[in-house]
Design a protein around this nucleic acid. Structure first.
Lengths: 331, 331
DNA sequence: CTGAAAGCGCTTACAG
DNA sequence: CTGAAAGCGCTTACAG
């Protein structure tokens, strides 16, 4: 019914079949200089014929390098990761590195286990696309292999380079846009207690105060009812800026469900430029992080560390506002 | 600035520090019976103190088993994968297997490269969550390690077990729902030429014919204009069933943009139960594949193969219709 | 240009 | 209950 579990051919089988020593096979396969073209060709042909595959375990063990980097994501369901991953993988591919991904499934504990597993596997370095791991865990990992994190840490790790977006500027751009089109009563829906969320909230508050306005903040955990109950009332909000697109989308959907006009009765801005925000009607105005660029930058930093650079860096990239239909002039 | 690249402690270091032989350390760490409690405790303490981590490369090489399974996904951006992954990982975790993910980024070529990489790394088996790889590639991989595929293959591979959903039943349920609520002029938007899409389309056509109706099909590549130009016209469609949620969502958004009422002027049904469909207003009626169950089932089959079972299996799980606001009675 | 030998860090019989 | 030895499949100086 299925194939016999024939043992995989090794370098020794290839050597025997080609009538050379096994070290010569090793050199030929790795494309080393000191092997005649004729010999190399013959060896490679034999290898192909035998269905030979270099055992990465043995190779990694012997060389102390695997040419693989690990990438840890806290939650695959969040489309943010796919874009960061694309950036990481594009750079890795271009520089001859393989990539494997570990998935935390939304749990710091699972993520940490995956981090250990991947480190045990001997990857040359790791990029952690998550702010879920604490500084201590990251530093412990960094004692084993170079580690770069993408995201905004709460407490900055000492031995880990960080790539993140400028949440302050992003939030400021969002609020400035709402102010520009005449809004004065703007509510922020805070997404979480993480560092990025906190920074967005603070920037919202500061921008509002700078404009001489009262910064109203509600917590996402309270639900959108608290906000929507006030819409249309005297003194009620005419716009809201949510800490992320998921919350913004919920607010938008709930507002439509209540029969409000968006943006007529309420303008809505999110953060992240998730695909579903673009598909909504009206489409969601949002702040876009340069996700792919962040991934590329992370790999650049990681490669430097792998190649011996001792410097840890912190790189902040600029987000940009994307204006769509969910925001409009204040009534 | 950063930690010295101190070489990682090995089993030999632990043995020396604990004053025992290295094989004893190996036995103690793996929790083998024949080691006294006192000795084991001492060895483990020393290992922890030294920051010892078992080198998975060496372990895998020596044992011929890594206790890791690989999971290949064609596109992380598609939220479908996160749920299948959750099922796979839940089972793997429960049975003591680690999981690493390879990402194809929408390209069959990249996916195949990742498959090879992961196989080279010595995983004990692979589940390919993608229909992008052809039967030959899958069979070649299966000659190396057990492989299970989740999805609907075009040509069935010979040595690979398959887990998929019943596209025929799913499509039938979607169409039956539209017929139930009085629709007679229903257009199908075909998503692709892949096997799953083709099955949905055929099932649509059959169900329509069985009801004595004319099955109209347009291609997603043509865009939604072709469909929407006819809505509201005499003889025009009152409902559409799209091959997947992405297309359904686009149709829904475009319809709203043209000022149509959904479902008043047009009912829309998708396939997949993607999150963004649920967030739309009106929320999308769709067919849900039992994604997590598919992942679990795939791992069950894979483990059987890893444990020596030679049988290849094909398992078809049943989808279910989720009715939401995007479908309503025909005018 | 080619081959014999040691070693990477583990595991696994096999003797004590 | 414990230790010495061979081996997993590769790479890397080192001699020829």
């Amino acid at each position: 019914m299925t194939s016999p579990p024939r043992p995989a051919p090794t370098i020794v089988d290839v050597a025997r079949a080609a009538g050379v020593s096994k070290s010569l096979v090793s050199l030929a396969i790795r494309g080393d200089a000191g092997v005649s073209d004729a010999t190399r060709t013959r060896i490679l042909d034999v290898a192909t014929e035998l269905g030979y595959h270099s055992n990465a375990l043995a190779r990694g063990l012997a060389r102390g390098r695997t040419q693989m980097v690990g990438m840890l994501v806290s939650d695959l369901a969040n489309p943010y990761f796919a874009d960061v991953a694309a950036g990481i993988e594009a750079d890795a591919e271009a520089t001859g590195l393989g990539t494997i991904i570990g998935h935390g499934r939304g749990s710091a504990e699972v993520l940490e286990r995956r981090l250990d597993e991947i480190l045990d596997l001997g990857v040359d370095g790791v990029v952690v696309v998550s702010a879920m791991l604490d500084a201590e865990t990251l530093d412990r990992a960094a004692a084993r292999r170079p580690v770069v994190m993408v995201g905004r840490p709460f407490a900055p790790p000492r031995r880990v380079s960080v790539v993140r977006n400028n949440d302050e500027h992003g939030a400021q751009a969002a609020v400035a846009h709402l102010l520009d089109i005449g809004h004065r009563r703007i509510t922020h829906i805070a997404s979480s207690r993480r560092a990025a969320a906190t920074a967005r909230r603070s920037s919202f508050e500061e921008t509002m105060r700078d404009a001489g306005l009262d910064p109203v903040v509600i917590d996402a955990a309270e639900g959108t009812a608290r906000l929507l109950d006030l819409v249309g009332r005297p003194g009620g909000p005419t716009a809201c800026f949510a800490g992320n697109d998921r919350i913004a989308t919920t607010a938008l959907s709930d507002a439509l469900e209540r029969g409000f006009d968006v943006p007529g009765d309420l303008s809505v801005v999110g953060y992240d430029n998730a695909e579903f925000g673009r598909l909504m009607r009206p489409a969601l105005t949002t702040v876009e992080q340069p996700r792919e660029a962040m991934g590329r930058e992370a790999m650049r930093l990681l490669r430097a560390r792998i190649d011996g650079d001792r410097e840890v860096a912190e790189v902040t990239l600029e987000p940009r506002l994307i204006v769509r239909g969910s925001t409009g002039p204040a009534a």
